[in-house]
């Protein structure tokens, strides 16, 4: 099966500093791909290249098998790629529906079509089996961390997106809320979306992911099936770039 999103030989430099070296990365529909790596390994840069925030220097960017050029977040969104950043980018003073449709409001003439938006938002949340919010007309400021994360994810999937990238979605959450969000992440993939989960937490990664992609100093150390590796191997890949037969040899892919 062709991956929904495939990157080949991606290079990216900021001035004299090369952040990504010849990175290959693929994401499949219906799967959760965990993107792991130590601080500074290039996870954020890679995601920003995917999202059109940073242009890539060289390499191929394939979407559904076709080469594409993504120069702005808008173009990424038009392809069906949505990124949920760590800070969630929600407006506290607006309610759930208003946040989900922010910048892409439905209108009838010049008037906002609140009823349609409310229906669509309710349907999306229902489709994700979200049962934790009292009313979708609640202000976001009154939501818990997990509920906010849920709203941000629901906002990303509202647009029939195909790839959803989540940047550390559980970093600020407690145990129960982490479980809820992970459940939601799994459900997204089960509904056929391609999900990329950036995480530092090995428990989360092993709990929900189908594949693991490990970055080490700007190179893709390995992209493997989660069932084929152990906890310790992934940690080794993250910290030293190799683990047994897996990973980089002398800093280049085996």
């Amino acid at each position: 099966m062709t991956p929904v999103l495939e990157l080949r030989g991606i290079d990216k430099s900021f001035g004299p500093v090369q952040v990504l070296h010849d990175v290959a990365f693929s994401v499949h529909a219906g799967e959760v791909t965990a993107l792991v790596g130590d601080n500074g390994a290039g996870k954020s840069t890679l995601v920003k290249c995917v999202g059109g925030i940073h242009p890539i220097d060289s390499g191929e960017y394939l979407f559904e098998g076709k080469p594409v050029h993504v120069h702005s977040p808008r173009e990424a969104a038009a392809l069906g790629i949505e990124i949920v950043y760590q800070d969630l980018a929600l407006c506290d003073n607006l309610d759930i529906v208003q946040n989900m449709f922010l910048g892409r409001e439905h209108k009838r003439g010049i008037v906002l079509d609140e009823d349609t938006m409310e229906e669509m938002a309710a349907k999306t949340l229902e489709g994700l089996s979200v049962r934790t919010v009292k009313s979708i007309r609640q202000h976001v400021s009154s939501l818990s961390g997990g509920q906010r994360q849920t709203v941000a994810i629901a906002k990303a999937v509202l647009w029939n997106s195909k790839v959803v990238i989540l940047d550390e979605p559980t970093a600020a959450l407690g145990v129960a809320q982490t479980a809820q969000v992970l459940e939601l992440v799994r459900r997204l993939a089960d509904q056929g979306l391609a999900v990329v989960l950036i995480s530092h937490n090995m428990n989360d990664v092993f709990a929900v992911s189908d594949r693991i992609a490990a970055l080490y100093l700007g190179r893709m150390a390995a992209q493997v099936k989660t069932s084929d590796v152990t906890h310790a191997q992934v940690v080794e890949l993250i910290t030293s770039g190799r683990s047994g037969d897996l990973g980089l040899t002398n800093g280049v892919p085996a």
Partner: peptide
């Protein structure tokens, strides 16, 4: 309202 609530979120939207 969105810009007043969170200008960065509004910009990204």
């Amino acid at each position: 309202y969105a810009v007043g609530g969170n200008a960065e979120a509004a910009r990204r939207a």
